[in-house]
Structure formats: structure tokens, C-alpha cells
């Protein structure tokens, strides 16, 4: 019985959200606002349970006076952050936000270099390992082609992003041209970017289609249960 009640709740919300397909309407807004309220409440609970309590309340409750003293710093930062939300004390918020900005920037720099730049560049270079080419006998030409396409494609894609352009002193109308070599490589890059975006689109579309089928099946299943056929 309990499952059926929750099933009906899910059914109603599903139909209300799917009604958006015929245009924005009150049913969609109703379901959307329930969802917003629910996620907001749930996120608040998670923030309190998983951040505020373990990182702030527990150290104060269980720690000694030294821990207490250390916690004065984040307490001060929190107070400044909260105070900063009032227009009168707006500048107070700049210190805790500067703290967060510095931390986020460092994480971004580390992530960009050690999480993306190095591993991706390494993967391109590793494809040229002759040991890998001859690992499968008779298919080495494919591995070589793979490596070459990877190198040319990545260089082409990077060239497409080139920002600068030739500068002339009488440059009244902005020239759309980057350097010629970059332009040529960029054309190759465009094809590879298109291929990537197309493949990603296909996988997004496939997942979305599976969700659509799942919802249709779900609606059918609950309706069958309600009329006693399931």
C-alpha cells in the first residue's frame, strides 16, 4: 500500500513535469516548485549534517580549549560572511570570500595542470610508444594511424582556440584572421570538435531517450496497478 501511495505521488509529478511538452502551464509550475522546495530543504539538511556539524559543532563540543581557540578563526570568518550579506557591512564579506576565492583558485590551478593538462598530454604522447604499436601483430598500422590522428586532431583543436590576430597599425576594422598556419590547423580542429560534440550529443540523447521510455513505462505500470491489472 505504501509503495502504491509513493507510486501515485511519482505518477502525478511525472505527468505534471511531462506536461511542459505542450507548453508552460500551472501543473508544471506546481511540480517544479515542489521540487525546488524539496531539494532546497534536502540540501540544507545535508549541509548542516555533513558540513556544519562535523566541521564546526563537533570540534567545539568534543575538543579542548586549544581546539576552541583554533575554531575562533573560522567562527570569525563565518560571522564576517554573514555580516557581509547586509548592504551596510558589505565589505566585511570580502575577507571570507577572498579566502574561498584563493582556495578555489588553487584547486583550479592544481586541477587544470595535474588533473587535465598533464594526463591528457601524456596520453597523446604515450600513443607513440613503439611497444604499443607492435603489441597486436598485424594491426600495427592501425595503432600508428591512431597515434597520428590523435596528434593531428589535438593540435588542430588547440589551434582553433588561438585568440590573437595579426596586428597592423591601421587596423580600423577588426580582422577576423589569426595567423595562416593556425587558421589551416584550426579548420582540421573544427572537424574533430564537431565529431566530438556529435558523439557526446548522441550519448546525451540516448540517455535522455532511456529516461523518456522509463517514464512512459512507469506511468503505465502505476496506472495498471491502480486499476487493479498490475
Amino acid at each position: 500500500m505504501n509503495d502504491l501511495i509513493w507510486g501515485v505521488v511519482g505518477l502525478l509529478l511525472t505527468i505534471m513535469i511531462l506536461s511542459y511538452l505542450i507548453g508552460d502551464n500551472v501543473f508544471f509550475r506546481f511540480a517544479a516548485h515542489i521540487f525546488i522546495g524539496l531539494t532546497a530543504g534536502f540540501v540544507a539538511v545535508m549541509l548542516i549534517n555533513q558540513i556544519l556539524i562535523p566541521y564546526f559543532v563537533t570540534p567545539i563540543v568534543t575538543g579542548g580549549w586549544q581546539q576552541w581557540l583554533w575554531m575562533l578563526i573560522p567562527l570569525g570568518l563565518i560571522l564576517l560572511l554573514v555580516m557581509g550579506q547586509w548592504s551596510k557591512f558589505a565589505s566585511a564579506g570580502s575577507i571570507p570570500l577572498a579566502y574561498l576565492a584563493g582556495l578555489t583558485a588553487a584547486v583550479a590551478v592544481g586541477g587544470a595542470v595535474f588533473g587535465t593538462l598533464i594526463p591528457q598530454a601524456r596520453a597523446v604522447i604515450e600513443a607513440f610508444d613503439p611497444a604499443g604499436w607492435y603489441a597486436v601483430p598485424g594491426r600495427s598500422w592501425l595503432r600508428v594511424m591512431d597515434a597520428l590522428v590523435m596528434l593531428v586532431g589535438v593540435i588542430g583543436t588547440l589551434s582553433y582556440f588561438h585568440f590573437g590576430k595579426r596586428r597592423s597599425t591601421d587596423d580600423v576594422v577588426e580582422s577576423p584572421d589569426p595567423p595562416r598556419l593556425m587558421r589551416a590547423l584550426g579548420k582540421i580542429g573544427q572537424v574533430f570538435i564537431g565529431i566530438t560534440l556529435g558523439a557526446v550529443f548522441a550519448s546525451v540523447f540516448s540517455s535522455a531517450l532511456i529516461a523518456l521510455i522509463d517514464r512512459v513505462l512507469f506511468v503505465g505500470e502505476i496506472i495498471l496497478k491502480l486499476i487493479g491489472g498490475g
Binding site: 590551478v109 587535465t116 565529431i195 566530438t196 557526446v200
Partner: peptide, 22 residues
């Protein structure tokens, strides 16, 4: 094949992210 362009895009965005952070 799509990995090629993805790698190029990710490398480019990493350079952008690095500069924004710096």
C-alpha cells in the same frame, strides 16, 4: 575518434582554467 577532439577541448579548457586561477 571523438576522444581526439575531447582531448583537445579539455587541454584548451585546462589552459583557460589555469590562467583564471593564476
Amino acid at each position: 575518434l571523438p576522444i581526439v577532439g575531447a582531448r583537445g577541448i579539455l587541454l584548451g579548457m585546462a589552459i583557460g582554467g589555469l590562467i583564471v586561477g593564476l
